[in-house]
Design a protein around this nucleic acid. Structure first.
Lengths: 240, 240
DNA sequence: AGGGGCCTGCCATTGAACGGCACGCGGTCT
DNA sequence: AGACCGCGTGCCGTTCAATGGCAGGCCCCT
């Protein structure tokens, strides 16, 4: 059964459809077994098979996955507020949660004429070099923070090493301000403002951010807007 | 392994988190086996377990499901155009695909101050009494249409029987016009305009619609707007 | 105190998953 | 033309991991 899961894990952003052979090789399962498993997954709807014989992830799986509280569930309550932010900023609005030592992008609203796109919905972001990541890290369990800080880290697109002390100060600052502000030059000069979203028991369950081009209109107003939206979402989630 | 899938199938919109006992009963799997399977699914990330011991669908599963071409894949290319429509209409914009004899709602953009909500993203809609459903049915394989028409059908919220002949004429009209217009009084007086989205090989792969309150602003302009957006999306999908 | 769910770990049995193998097919290189 | 390679598929005897009954522990309600 783990083998069935490893078949699913064989798919990634760059490989959304696979032949049986690829499926077999990428999952490390002999072709005959891979076929048997894939057929059963297809019968259930977890996989689909195109006219060309290629396998891809099935809609049925997408349906049950849409019941994930931290995925669609979170998105559902956040969406209207994200929509408001998107309409005002006309750039990118991001919603992410922490999964292990990375952030997973749960939703991204991007205007038609927004900056070049950085991350994909359903994809992962580094915790230490993105706005939402810094927020999630800053408000995470201290033990987990130490664990991350102990690792060698590099800023993501540029591959510049991260100084642990500097990161630690950044995290403290994020906690103090209740938001993170990040300026980068990665694809284009941009500034990100991110704020935490609280669930029950005052735990941070997600992070919300806007990404706008540097030099764009409002530098200072962004903070309050994002924090307000984040608080509204928190309230909907039952934060005390 | 089918048993693992039936565990996943135990979740639905009304049961997004389940105790082990519920999981066991709803899937028909003895508790001890259900626990073992659920634990392995949890280890992989297909399920998550809250502090209260309840199981829910995991983010990891949501991640791989986001690779589904007919789910997130479709949504990804459609989103910007749906956003434009939403900004103009300020009501609901729906994107759905056909799965078996129902439609699955892949995305819904709803303004903050829109009408009461009808369907949930990830949920299912009847083919014969919704705008997107009629479009998907009208452009489906004729054999499949006959099969649906042979069944006893009722309009959905009202439980009024559907006359097969009338439906057949409606479908012909939808094909002729290249769009469906539906007026209903279900939750509130509303009008839906839906148009087909084509993929490669000129096959209809999805349907796009807007739902606005009856008596609202533009009755006639809606058609061209929806059809234009649908064509734009079709082009992005590689429709010849 | 008693009773009933609920969750969990153990363990001997058995039935289903496993993967090597061979076949048929289509495309490419020699 | 021929040979070859990769791919997808079905078969089948072996085996090992999944199975579920059982009992124990916990908590809540009566």
């Amino acid at each position: 059964m783990d083998r069935a899961l490893s078949l699913l894990a064989a798919f990634d952003a760059g490989h959304r459809s696979l032949t049986l052979g690829e499926l077999s090789r990428r999952s490390g399962i002999p072709p005959s077994s891979a076929l048997r498993l894939a057929n059963r997954l297809t019968a259930w709807g977890a996989l689909e098979r195109g006219d060309d014989g290629r396998f891809s992830v099935g809609l049925r799986l997408w349906e049950v996955a849409s019941l994930a509280p931290r995925g669609q569930g979170l998105r559902q309550v956040a969406m209207p507020f994200m929509g408001d932010l998107a309409e005002v900023t006309r750039q990118h609005v991001l919603l992410a949660v922490r999964e292990g030592d990375e952030a997973v992008l749960v939703e991204r609203l991007s205007s038609h004429h927004a900056m070049p796109v950085l991350y994909r919905v359903g994809g992962r972001l580094p915790l230490h070099s993105t706005g939402v990541g810094l927020v999630l890290l800053a408000f995470a369990d201290p033990a987990f923070q130490d664990e991350v800080l102990a690792r060698p880290l590099v800023h993501e697109p540029e591959k510049v090493p991260v100084a642990p002390d500097a990161l630690r100060r950044t995290l403290a600052e994020v906690r103090r301000q209740g938001m993170a502000t990040v300026r980068r030059a990665s694809p284009a000069p941009l500034v990100t403002v991110a704020a935490p979203i609280f669930g029950a028991e005052h735990r941070v369950v997600a992070a919300l951010s806007v990404v706008v081009p540097r030099g764009g209109a409002e530098p200072r107003q962004l903070g309050p807007a994002v924090r307000t939206a984040a608080r509204s979402i928190s309230r909907m989630l039952g934060a005390h």
